Amino acid sequence: MSKIANKQMICEVLMDAAKTDRDIVALCSDSRGSGSFTPFADTYPEQFVETGIAEQNLVSIAAGLAKCGKKAYAVSPACFLSTRSYEQAKVDVAYSNTNVKLIGISGGVSYGALGMSHHSAQDIAAMAAIPNMRVYIPSDHLQTRELVKALLKDEKPAYVRVGRNAVEPVYEEEHVPFEMDKATVVCEGTDIAIIACGEMVKPAKDAAELLNAQGISASVIDMYCVKPLDAEAVVKAAENAKAVLTVEEHAPYGGLGSMVSQIVGSRCPKKVVNLSLPDAPVITGTSKEVFDYYGLNAEGIAEKAAELVK
Rank of each mutant, 00 (worst) to 15 (best):
M1P: 15
M1R: 12
K3R: 14
A5L: 12
K7R: 15
K7A: 03
K7C: 01
I10W: 00
I10N: 03
C11L: 03
C11W: 01
C11V: 02
L14F: 04
D16P: 12
A17Y: 07
A18L: 09
D23N: 15
A26N: 13
L27H: 05
S31R: 03
R32K: 15
R32W: 04
G33Q: 06
F40G: 10
P45T: 03
I53T: 07
A54W: 01
L58N: 06
V59S: 00
V59F: 00
S60W: 03
S60G: 05
G64W: 01
G69M: 08
G69F: 06
K70A: 08
V75I: 15
V75N: 02
S76P: 01
P77L: 09
A78V: 04
F80V: 08
F80I: 09
S82C: 13
T83E: 14
T83A: 13
R84H: 10
R84A: 10
Q88Y: 07
A94P: 00
S96V: 08
S96Q: 11
N97E: 15
N97A: 12
T98H: 04
V100W: 02
I103Q: 02
I103H: 00
I105W: 01
V109R: 08
S110Y: 06
L114W: 05
A121V: 15
Q122W: 08
D123N: 14
A126Q: 13
A129K: 06
N132W: 10
M133A: 01
R134Y: 03
Y136A: 02
I137L: 11
S139H: 02
S139T: 13
D140R: 05
D140K: 07
H141L: 04
L142V: 11
V148P: 00
A150Y: 03
L151A: 07
L151K: 04
L152K: 02
K153T: 15
E155L: 11
P157A: 02
P157W: 00
V160H: 01
R161D: 14
N165H: 13
P169V: 05
P169R: 00
Y171V: 02
Y171L: 03
Y171I: 01
E173R: 09
F178I: 09
F178T: 04
E179S: 07
K182H: 11
K182E: 08
K182C: 07
V186M: 02
C197V: 05
C197P: 03
P203A: 06
P203Q: 08
L210F: 12
L210T: 14
Q214I: 08
S217D: 15
A218S: 15
Y224M: 13
V226H: 05
K227Y: 04
D230T: 01
E232G: 12
A233G: 13
A233H: 00
V234D: 01
V234M: 10
K236I: 07
A238E: 10
E239T: 13
E239Y: 03
N240F: 03
L245N: 12
H250E: 12
A251N: 15
Y253F: 05
Y253C: 07
V260E: 02
Q262P: 10
I263T: 07
C268H: 09
P269K: 05
L275H: 04
A280G: 04
T286V: 07
F291Q: 01
Y293N: 12
Y293S: 11
Y294G: 08
Y294W: 04
G295D: 09
L296T: 14
N297P: 11
A298C: 14
L308I: 13
